[in-house]
């Protein structure tokens, strides 16, 4: 039996400011991971990644990241992805202070 597929989100950096963004179900790039589409099917994940990569004028460096369903939506599994939802730990910079617009 193939190993169980770990749910994924499609994530990237916004082209203009490099901010971490996540692909939503309705094809927007959200600065909030909780708004991302949580993908539980491997074939669908591959397809969504291809679609994301095609949007070259909006983002750079799209990839699939492990995620799990939390109270408000998808949450990071790995600490690297958790840092991307917040910003650096040495200064109050990035998402932790720049409340992103509700997109």
């Amino acid at each position: 039996m193939p190993p169980r597929f770990t749910p994924k989100v499609v994530t990237a950096n916004a082209l203009l400011d490099g901010d971490a963004v996540w692909l939503t179900e309705d094809d927007h790039w959200s600065p909030l991971m909780s708004r991302a589409e949580l993908i539980t099917d491997e074939a669908h994940a591959d397809l969504r990644l291809l679609q994301a990569k095609a949007r070259a004028s909006e983002i750079a460096g799209a990839y699939l990241a492990d995620a799990r369903l939390g109270a408000d939506g998808p949450e990071p599994v790995h600490f690297r992805e958790a840092f991307r939802t917040r910003g650096p730990s040495n200064y109050p910079h990035g998402k932790q202070v720049e409340t992103p617009p509700q997109t």
Binding site: N13, L15, L16, D17, G18, D19, A20, A56, S57, A60, G61, R80, F83, R84, G87, P88, H93, G94, K95
Partner: peptide, 27 residues
């Protein structure tokens, strides 16, 4: 790159030649 005529794969070696990286939260 911004107007879409260069893809990221095309642009990446050009930006790196000029010291521009893309990191976790920003360039």
């Amino acid at each position: 790159r911004i107007d879409g005529s260069l893809t990221e794969d095309e642009f990446k070696p050009l930006r790196l030649m000029n010291g521009l990286y893309l990191q976790l939260h920003a360039y």
